[in-house]
């Protein structure tokens, strides 16, 4: 099963390594991890997604709660929260498929940030599943480089 955790932590050095170390030591997976300051610069918010059985997901929540640098942990359900991910991709094109790539970007509401003779740099953000689909679609053109942010999530 999938676990989405939104974690408020102290915005201090060593905290990120502590949290990632906790996952490593106990053999928990980190599928995605996104970190950034909140409106209070002393506090950061992490969104961590993980997969594992029920016991593992429960343990992740408990072990995170136990960490002194963690202020609050919330487990989100996909249905009751907004989950977003952002993608940057350099997609190769040629004269023959140039129009279809632009059309695809229009349909998917992806933004073309830069065009060079060899590739377009495309920005896309959506729910993680849609990002997966989008990657699948642009694979046909040829992906030169790709960067995903990891999921950020918030309860509705």
């Amino acid at each position: 099963m999938k676990g989405i955790f939104t974690v408020l932590v102290e915005n201090r050095d060593g905290v990120l390594s502590g949290i990632s170390g906790l996952f490593a030591r106990r053999g928990f997976n980190i599928d995605t991890l996104a970190v950034g300051e909140t409106e209070n610069h002393e506090i950061s918010r992490m969104t961590i997604t993980s997969t594992g059985d029920q016991r593992t997901i429960d343990q992740i929540e408990k072990q995170l709660n136990k960490s002194v640098d963690v202020i609050k942990v919330r487990r989100l359900s996909e249905a009751k929260s907004v989950c977003l991910e952002m993608l940057l991709a350099k997609v190769a094109y040629n004269a023959g498929n140039r129009t279809s790539l632009i059309e695809l970007c229009q349909v998917m509401e992806a933004k073309v940030m830069k065009v060079t003779p060899k590739y377009m740099l495309v920005e896309y953000h959506s729910e993680p599943d849609n990002v997966d689909d989008f990657i699948h679609l642009i694979k046909g053109f040829g992906i030169i480089e790709i960067q995903r942010t990891g999921t950020i999530a918030m309860e509705k």
């Binding site: 016991r55 429960d58 343990q59 408990k62 072990q63 709660n65 136990k66």
Partner: peptide
């Protein structure tokens, strides 16, 4: 006393 002990090795 440690919530994380509950269910760690056994439910």
């Amino acid at each position: 006393i440690d919530t994380a002990e509950i269910g760690k090795n056994m439910g």
